[in-house]
Amino acid sequence: METAQAQRPTTQDSAASFTVEPQSPTIGAFIHGLDLSQTLDDATIDALRQALVQWKVIFFRDQHISTDEHIAFAQRFGELEVHPLTPADQDQPEILRIAHNKDKRGTENFWHSDVTWRPQPSLGSILRAVKLPDVGGDTLWADMEAAYQGLSDELKERLDGLQAQHSFLKGFGHLIPEEQHEGVLAKHPPQNHPVVRTHPESGHKSLYVNIAFTTHIVDMDPKESKALLKDLMRTASTPEYQVRLRWQPGTIAFWDNRSSQHYAASDYWPHTRVMDRVTVAGEKPF
Rank of each mutant, 00 (worst) to 15 (best):
A212V: 08
A212F: 12
F213E: 13
T214H: 02
T214D: 06
T214Y: 03
T215P: 04
H216Y: 12
I217T: 01
V218S: 00
D219N: 10
M220G: 01
D221S: 06
P222F: 00
P222A: 03
P222Y: 01
P222W: 01
K223G: 10
K223W: 08
E224H: 05
E224M: 01
S225E: 07
K226H: 08
K226G: 06
A227S: 08
L229G: 07
K230F: 03
K230S: 09
K230L: 04
D231K: 01
D231F: 03
D231C: 01
D231S: 06
L232Y: 05
L232H: 10
L232F: 09
L232Q: 07
M233Q: 06
M233R: 07
R234Q: 15
R234D: 15
R234H: 14
T235A: 07
T235E: 05
T235P: 02
T235D: 05
T235H: 01
A236Y: 13
A236W: 10
A236P: 11
A236T: 15
A236D: 13
S237R: 14
S237I: 09
S237V: 12
S237H: 13
T238F: 13
T238S: 14
T238G: 09
P239Q: 08
E240H: 08
E240I: 07
E240C: 06
Y241H: 15
Y241G: 12
Y241C: 11
Q242G: 11
Q242F: 11
Q242A: 10
L245T: 03
L245W: 14
L245D: 04
L245I: 09
R246F: 08
W247Q: 10
Q248V: 06
P249V: 09
